[in-house]
């Protein structure tokens, strides 16, 4: 009879292998072919990879991806942390309504990404009856070209993404904040530490692991996010908001270039893995 961890691990390894590893290996195989959806025969080829690397568009797409990802991840963590701190502070002060606040923030998170894109498209509408611009007009401000101006469109996409993803950060960081020993804050109060000193010398160091794990998860989710942008701008105007995941989606589902789409997906995977490794290096040594 087999003893040890193997029998316990086998089912999990089997499921992971079948549903996660196999599709990745299949995508790697496709990336080294010239497969197109309507071709019955495919050949091993470096053409997909070569056309991807040699494309003049790839630079624009990667620059958009970098801007979108960095701004969205930083925004989600900062806002999530701010709301988590607010909720914890309110709970300590025994204020009512913290549950309602958490529920409201969570409501954004449960909305499907594609619906999130549509909601923000309505809000950002530049028609005379567009919601946000109408509010701006009421306040005497000029309307903003949220989606039609290439220099504003990326900002709008980032706002829509942050609005939805903040709840996830808030939950993780709220849980981590609850684990910090209140005695540390009491001692700091005795020492007359100012609020920013408490945040900088107590809260953030104790949140380091949670912040890094949060950053890793949000980074992967944001890099793979394409449905919000698809619904919001479709990647436009021009290519102003076209990020790598959306570019790969279009390559496969509009141009039917399976090989090239797989090559782009591999690039996305490599970027995700690389950035994850960088973030893991920031974890406290005992948490790696």
């Amino acid at each position: 009879m087999v003893s040890g961890p193997l029998p316990w691990l086998l089912p999990a390894v089997g499921v992971l292998g079948l549903f996660y590893l196999y599709p990745i290996l299949e995508a790697v195989r496709l990336a080294f072919t010239d497969a197109r959806l309507f071709d019955t025969e495919t050949q091993l080829s470096m053409r997909s990879l070569g056309s991807m690397v040699g494309s003049s568009t790839l630079g624009v797409i990667l620059r958009n991806t970098l801007t979108y990802t960095v701004a969205s991840v930083v925004g989600q963590i900062a806002l999530g942390l701010a709301i988590a701190l607010l909720v914890v502070r309110a709970e300590r002060a025994r204020l009512r309504g913290t549950l309602v606040l958490r529920t409201i923030v969570l409501a954004a998170w449960v909305i499907p990404a594609i619906a999130n894109g549509i909601i923000w498209q309505l809000l950002f509408s530049e028609a005379p009856f567009g919601a946000i611009n109408s509010a701006l007009r009421l306040m005497g401000a000029s309307p903003v070209a949220w989606l039609s101006d290439p220099s504003n469109a990326m900002t709008s996409a980032v706002i829509a993404t942050i609005w939805q993803g903040t709840a996830y950060s808030m939950i993780l960081l709220y849980a981590a904040l609850k684990t910090i020993d209140p005695a540390l804050y009491e001692a700091a109060a005795i020492d007359n530490a100012r609020p920013w000193e408490r945040l900088w010398f107590i809260t953030l160091p104790h949140l380091r692991a949670a912040l890094v794990v949060n950053a890793i998860l949000i980074l992967i989710m944001t890099l793979n996010m394409f449905d919000t942008i698809l619904a919001l701008t479709g990647g436009g105007p021009g290519r102003a908001t076209e990020i790598l995941s959306l570019y790969a989606y279009g390559t496969v589902f509009q141009n039917f270039e399976l090989g090239r789409g797989a090559a782009l997906s591999m690039l996305l995977l490599i970027i995700s893995l690389g950035l994850t490794m960088v973030l893991i290096a920031l974890l406290p040594r005992d948490r790696r």
Binding site: S148, P150, R239
Partner: peptide, 15 residues
């Protein structure tokens, strides 16, 4: 796809 990109670029003054 390229016509869509072109229209966006030209009409927004990017190209």
């Amino acid at each position: 796809n390229q016509i869509q990109i072109l229209l966006g670029d030209v009409l927004s003054g990017s190209a």
